[in-house]
């Protein structure tokens, strides 16, 4: 089956992103296709490469990045939510006149239409939030 995922909380404060990650891994192991993982609300904070959690903790961002590389996942951060919260890619940083970007490898920034498309194209959409 084709499954879409919405993650609407950031890393660490809530379990939502961890739950989504475990769910996606299990779905892939069962041979399902993950159409897209869309990060919205504070969920966009999963997509910064600047997090430095303690060595003995999981690194949620790099977990996603590695999973995306391994399975060619489409990890999309909502542009409107990302701009509010300071998640930028190179183009956006330039466009907004900011001196740095912070998007993590494997993530891309795009519009909310990508969430609607996920709903249309996927057989199931699963929401992880708080």
């Amino acid at each position: 089956m084709k499954i879409g995922i919405l993650v609407s909380e950031g890393p660490f404060t809530h379990q939502a992103s961890d739950s989504a990650y475990q769910f996606v891994k299990a779905a892939l192991e069962k041979g399902h296709e993950i159409f897209r993982v869309f990060f919205y609300n504070d969920g966009v904070n999963n997509g910064t490469r600047l997090t430095v959690p303690p060595q003995d903790e999981r690194n949620i961002q790099s977990n996603w990045t590695e999973l995306a590389e391994k399975h060619n996942l489409d990890l999309v951060v909502c542009i409107a939510a990302a701009q509010r919260r300071g998640i930028l890619d190179e183009n956006e940083a330039k466009r907004q006149g900011k001196d740095a970007d912070n998007i993590a490898p494997g993530f891309r920034i795009s519009g909310l239409g990508q969430l609607i498309e996920t709903g249309i194209e996927s057989d199931r959409l699963v929401v992880f939030g708080d």
Binding site: M1, I3, S8, Q22, F23, K25, A26, A27, E29, K30, H32, D123, R124, L125, V126, V127, F128, G129, D130
Partner: peptide, 20 residues
């Protein structure tokens, strides 16, 4: 159920609703 069971439930039911 484990996470695999979670995935199975998602596919068995037509739609899911998260009570956040």
């Amino acid at each position: 159920v484990d996470y695999g069971g979670f995935v199975d439930l998602i596919t068995e039911y037509d739609v899911s609703q998260a009570w956040l």
